[in-house]
Amino acid sequence: MKTNILGLPVKESEVIANELNVLLSNFQVYYQNLRGIHWNIRGKRFFDLHVKFEELYTDAQIKIDLIAERVLTIGATPLHTFEDYIKYNTVTAGKNISVDEEAVQLIVNSLSHLLKIERGILNKSAEINDEGTNSMMSDFIAEQEKTIWMMQAWLEESL
């Protein structure tokens, strides 16, 4: 079996890089969703949500960079055009969302979708002992599961 400089099988690493590029595309749309709801949120919860959405898009921006750098590390080229992002994205694009519940639900749905992609990558990277990708996916998954829990708690009606 032919391996790359990292000692990972070339063919399987190419598959993982392609899936990371799909994740990258979806994260770019998620990031832009967060920017949009940050800009457009209205209502009595504006101050709290405006800050929270900025925190989330800053985190997403960091993750986007980490994903792109992982693609490069395993020997591929990260996608970097809006044309590619749109082509490979499957996260729902939010448009003109200004209502708090709708904005938070978009985040929950987007993160749930990203988790599915990340778990698929984690399974494939685990098969070839790609610890760099495993670690990154595990960290993303743990953080996003907690964010979903918090957002779901926020969406619940008080008793």
Score class of each variant (00 low, 15 high):
T3C: 11
N4K: 13
I5F: 15
L8K: 00
V10Y: 14
S13W: 09
I16R: 05
I16Y: 05
A17I: 01
N18Y: 05
L23V: 01
S25Y: 00
Y31H: 12
L34E: 02
R35A: 06
R35H: 06
G36E: 00
I37R: 02
W39H: 04
N40H: 06
R42V: 06
G43S: 05
R45A: 14
D48P: 07
L49F: 08
H50I: 00
F53I: 02
Y57T: 03
Y57F: 12
Y57D: 03
Y57I: 00
Q61D: 10
K63P: 05
K63T: 07
K63N: 11
I64R: 04
L66E: 15
A68Y: 08
L72K: 09
I74S: 10
T77A: 08
H80T: 10
H80R: 15
T81A: 07
D84K: 13
Y85W: 04
Y85C: 01
Y85Q: 05
I86Y: 13
Y88V: 07
V91E: 00
T92S: 08
A93L: 03
Q105R: 09
L106M: 03
S110P: 02
S110Y: 01
L111W: 04
I117Q: 04
E118C: 10
I121S: 03
I121A: 01
I121M: 08
K124H: 08
K124M: 03
A126T: 10
D130I: 03
E131M: 14
E131K: 15
M137I: 02
S138Q: 15
F140P: 03
I141S: 14
Q144W: 07
E145K: 12
T147V: 08
W149Q: 11
M150C: 09
M151W: 12
M151T: 07
Q152T: 14
A153W: 03
L155M: 11
L155A: 08
